[in-house]
C-alpha cells in the first residue's frame, strides 16, 4: 500500500481525528488528561461500548439496525444477578443470561424476517419489552451481586491496577470479530447481503439465516456487556447499559460503518469507540456539566451521520 492510499483511507482520517481530540483535551486539562489512571478510565469506558458496537456494527453492515441492545443487555444482567441471588452458580447464571440475550435477538430477527417489520421500529419495541421484563425481575430495585468470580470477570484489573480484565475480553473479541468479518465466508456474506440482499440470495447466500445469526449474536454480546458492567459495579441496577447503546451506534457510524449497509469494519469501529470515549472522558476532565455532555454526544452523532451522508452521496454520484 503506498503512502497516498494510506493518506486517503478512512482509518487514517479517524486516527487524525483521535489525535486532535487527545491533543485538545490534554491542553485544556493541563496534562491531567494523560495521567495513567485517566487513560485507564478511558479504556474502561470502551468495554461496554465495544461489545455493543461489534453486535450493532455487524447488523449495520448487513443493512439492519438494532436499538434494543441496551434494553436486552440490562435485562440479561439483571437476570444473571437474580439467578445468582437464587443460588445458581455464576457460570450457569452467565450462560443463562447469554442464551436469554440470543433469544431476544432471535425475537428481533423473527419480527424483521417473518413479519417484515422495519428493524428500526421492531427493535425499539423489543427494547421496551425487555425493559419491562427487567423491572419485573428486579421489582424495580437493584440486585447486589456477591459472587466473587462474577465480580472478578467484570472488575478485576492487572498490572498496577491499570489494565481491566474486561478490557482484555473486549479487545480479544474485537480482534476475533474483525478477522472473521474480513476473512471468512460468513464475514464476506454480511457485506454482500448489506450491499444487495436480493442479488446475494439469488447468488446462493441465505440472507435470512445471516440476519438471524447477527441479531442473536448482538443480543448475546449485549448480555455479556451488561454482565461485565454489573460485575464491575458488584450490583445490577435498572439503568445498566441503556445509555451505552447510543454510544455504540455513534461509534459504529463514526468508525465508518455506513447506515445503508455494505461497508465499514471493526478497525474503524475500534478507533470510533476510542474517539468517543476519549471525548466523553475529556469533557468530564474539563468539568463540562453532565447535561451539556449529553448535548455534545448528540452533536457528535449528528456530525458522524453527516460525514456518512456526505461520503455515501459522493459514492453514488461517482
Amino acid at each position: 500500500m503506498n503512502i497516498k492510499k494510506i493518506a486517503h483511507s478512512k482509518i487514517f482520517t479517524l486516527l487524525i481525528l483521535l489525535a486532535i481530540v487527545i491533543a485538545t483535551f490534554t491542553i485544556l486539562s493541563n496534562g491531567a488528561f494523560l495521567q495513567p489512571r485517566n487513560i485507564r478510565n478511558i479504556f474502561q469506558a470502551t468495554v461496554v461500548v465495544s461489545l455493543l458496537t461489534i453486535g450493532a456494527g455487524m447488523l449495520m453492515i448487513s443493512g439492519q439496525i438494532d436499538l434494543s441492545l441496551g434494553g436486552i443487555g440490562t435485562m440479561c444482567a439483571m437476570m444473571a444477578a437474580f439467578l445468582m441471588r437464587s443460588g445458581l452458580p455464576w457460570h450457569l447464571s452467565m450462560l443463562a443470561a447469554l442464551v436469554l440475550g440470543a433469544i431476544c435477538g432471535a425475537f428481533n430477527a423473527v419480527l424483521v424476517n417473518e413479519f417484515n417489520f422495519q428493524s428500526f421500529i421492531a427493535t425499539l419495541a423489543t427494547a421496551s419489552i425487555a425493559q419491562g421484563f427487567m423491572a419485573v425481575i428486579s421489582q424495580g430495585r437493584q440486585i447486589d451481586i456477591s459472587d466473587r468470580t462474577f465480580n472478578f470477570i467484570g472488575g478485576a484489573r492487572f498490572w498496577d491496577d491499570l489494565i481491566p480484565f474486561s478490557l482484555i475480553i473486549s479487545l480479544v473479541l474485537l480482534v476475533l470479530y474483525g478477522i472473521m468479518l474480513k476473512n471468512t465466508k460468513f464475514g464476506r456474506s454480511i457485506y454482500l447481503v448489506g450491499g444487495n440482499a436480493d442479488a446475494s440470495r439469488l447468488a446462493g447466500l441465505r440472507p435470512k439465516r445471516i440476519s438471524y445469526l447477527l441479531f442473536m449474536n448482538a443480543g448475546a454480546l449485549a448480555a455479556l456487556a451488561g454482565m461485565l458492567l454489573a460485575g464491575r459495579m458488584m450490583t445490577s441496577n435498572t439503568v445498566g447499559i441503556t445509555n451505552a447503546q447510543f454510544q455504540g451506534l455513534t461509534a459504529a457510524i463514526l468508525g465508518g460503518i455506513a447506515f445503508g449497509g455494505g461497508s465499514g469494519g471493526m478497525g474503524g469501529a475500534m478507533i470510533g469507540i476510542l474517539i468517543l470515549s476519549t471525548f466523553n472522558n475529556g469533557m468530564t476532565m474539563i468539568n463540562v456539566p453532565m447535561h451539556w455532555q449529553s448535548v455534545a454526544s448528540g452533536l457528535v452523532l449528528l456530525s458522524a451521520l453527516t460525514a456518512d451522508f456526505l461520503s455515501s452521496r459522493k459514492r453514488t454520484s461517482a
Binding site: 454482500l192 450491499g195 444487495n196 436480493d198 442479488a199 447468488a203 446462493g204 455494505g262 461497508s263
Partner: peptide, 17 residues
C-alpha cells in the same frame, strides 16, 4: 438490482456461490 452487488469488486461478485 438482482444480479450484482454493485459496490463490491469483480472478484467478490464472481466468488459468491
Amino acid at each position: 438490482e438482482e444480479g450484482l452487488v454493485l459496490y463490491r469488486s469483480i472478484t467478490d461478485n464472481v466468488s459468491i456461490p
